[in-house]
Design a protein around this nucleic acid. Structure first.
Lengths: 348, 348
DNA sequence: CTTACTACAAAAAACGTTTAACATAAGAAA
DNA sequence: TTTCTTATGTTAAACGTTTTTTGTAGTAAG
């Protein structure tokens, strides 16, 4: 390692016997350069192992070809799939990705944002932390680079966003359970002040309302999004005399806690309890029985996010109409039926 | 968004009524600046929302404070945990991380490496792809920046590396199964031309040899590391007349395939078959029974990797003794016993 | 009253690119 | 021959920092 300093464009120019401008134009395929000189330049660059200095290039040209990817929680497998897809697409489009994990900590998020600003990233893809952006709302929207929110939308912020249609997601879950005959159903969710939780519940409620069923509010557990909360909430629901016949776990941490609690109680799924969760989890098909889920369209979200952001970036560069308004895109979830949900059995 | 161009150091200097040199020295706490000017400068910077232009800084100073993180396969949950920890530690040390996923594709790996070179990352953390680096061996070692290999070591390459002690890992698995009385055991592994697989098998073999047991070579399935291969290999092992009483799955993809196959055959774990796998998987405690595993010390590996690389970087900067030789660090695995392994029952 | 030193601050020179402005030669039109 | 084009190259000026060099007071020593 450390094979001495790298060659500059000047050394390539000297070896090829041309000016630096010619080298630059050749390597960037910009401007006119004769065939013969092009070959000399390419040969020289090849021979020296020339790699253009990105910092110098950015300084002069104003573009870094770097995208910031600021994730609220890398431990969340759903976000991870998003990261994977976004990296792939960005890379294919010639952009490098700086990965930042805020771990649901607004302070970390803010530091990372400042860093991306200093780094002069061409754009930022942000899955914002759940709490704490109330005060930093301005910071995000006044970001002097194109930014796009993923998965979690922030109301009143004129930023593009790509999210799942969470109302549709809730309704999908409700329709499935309803079709199976369930009427007394529990919901385990995070705090209703979070838009996502609220939307999913709204959709779920609507789905049942459409078939004339009103949800029992006492079976709706509103806490936070942790596995522990899911565990506790499940135990509470299961120890009721009017135990629900099905439970909807509105995110994957909660689903983990739920499964643990059900296992501890020794209940049989789906005979004694139907379970439906959210997100395609790596192990969803592995547990016995396989977990029925409503999934968010992870690949589509990644694609839409990257292409929308890149469009914004090129618009900004060409100085086109900046204010064609905020793009707020919602994509549709899907139902994946496995073994954890079944038709209700008449109670003896 | 797009709140116009960002202020430069010149504008800060003008507002504060000082020279740019004074601003630079104040903001970097280098050189002597009087109290009163410092305050004026800080106030001006604050007011303008000044964020130093990283490219300009790098161009002049030669350091980017960027680390490249090149991962062989982001879909691997073990690597993901590594990524998470490495990002956290790097960020805490003031470095940004450019994330690259080569998805086990040497071509992508090579492109990413070239990009990191152009980007002039201060260092590179590489989990190399399994195949294909034979020819690119030189490319990696002649990288003009400090680099460090993680998880997968490449022989004959004078690069630092941090890996699990895979021989110890294999032995740990063997000792556990041996203690439980198992003698006829199967192994599902990838191609033995891969060092990791080989080491794990060696350790496993040694562990049994130490208690006077020789492994039946026909029960050692050598294929590749995919889930499908694990599935097929398991089916083969289970349909033998002299079926093994325990199986060691040497990586997590293989373990997935194994569990699927066992489930299909309707065998009961651990009554009819003990299973031990590698790596702490997010769902290891969730399947019934919980999966017994030998885990790699993910946090320790991340810590050692980052600190070793940062040391190399600062050595390089201060021009210290470059050639104090290659650091090849091996960290110890641990056994986590859950329900998937049990003492052998005498066959009727 | 010089001279020497100290403590700051300012001026200017890089760093490696891209690109706008300028040169030069060859051929075409006059 | 002279003058315009055209086609291709080169020169030089940015880009925003850091850092070395130079400058200027003010104070202490002679």
């Amino acid at each position: 390692m450390s094979a001495g300093p790298l060659p500059t464009i000047h050394e390539v120019a000297r070896l090829a016997g041309v000016s630096v401008a010619t080298v630059s134009k050749t390597l960037n395929r910009s401007g006119k350069v004769s065939e013969v000189l092009q070959e000399r330049v390419n040969a020289a660059a090849q021979k020296l192992g020339y790699a253009p200095h990105a910092s110098a290039r950015s300084l002069r040209s104003g573009a870094t070809r770097i995208l910031g990817l600021l994730v609220a929680d890398l431990a969340n497998p759903y976000f991870l799939r998003l990261v994977e897809n976004i990296e792939r697409l960005s890379s294919a489009a010639g952009y490098s990705v700086i990965l930042c994990n805020s771990a649901e900590d607004p302070a970390r998020e803010e530091r990372h944002l400042a860093m991306l600003l200093s780094q002069r990233a061409d754009g930022a893809i942000v899955i914002p932390t759940r709490r704490g952006w109330n005060g930093r709302l301005a910071a995000l929207s006044s970001l002097p680079m194109p930014g796009i929110l993923v998965d979690r939308r922030i109301e009143g912020l004129d930023l593009d966003s790509v999210t799942t249609d969470n109302v549709a997601l809730g309704r999908l879950a409700a329709e499935h359970l309803g079709d199976l005959g369930h009427r007394r159903v529990g919901v385990i969710m995070g705090s209703p002040e979070h838009q996502i939780a609220r939307h999913r519940l709204d959709g779920f409620r609507t789905g049942f309302a459409e078939r004339g069923v009103t949800l029992d509010e006492r079976l709706i557990e509103k806490n936070n999004f942790s596995e522990m909360a899911g565990h506790a909430a499940t135990l509470r629901l299961l120890s009721r005399s009017d135990r629900p016949t099905a439970i909807f776990a509105t995110n994957n941490h909660l689903a983990l806690g739920l499964l643990r609690a059900v296992g501890e109680r020794g209940l049989s799924i789906p005979d004694e309890l139907s379970v439906i969760a959210v997100d395609e989890l790596p192990w969803a098909g592995l547990v016995r029985p396989g977990l029925t889920v409503v999934t968010q369209p992870s690949e589509a979200i990644a694609e839409t996010t990257v292409s929308t952001l890149l469009k914004r970036i090129s618009e900004g560069r060409s100085g086109m109409n900046e204010d064609d308004g905020e793009r707020s895109i919602q994509l549709q979830p899907a139902l994946v039926v496995r073994g954890s949900t079944a038709a209700i059995r008449e109670q003896p």
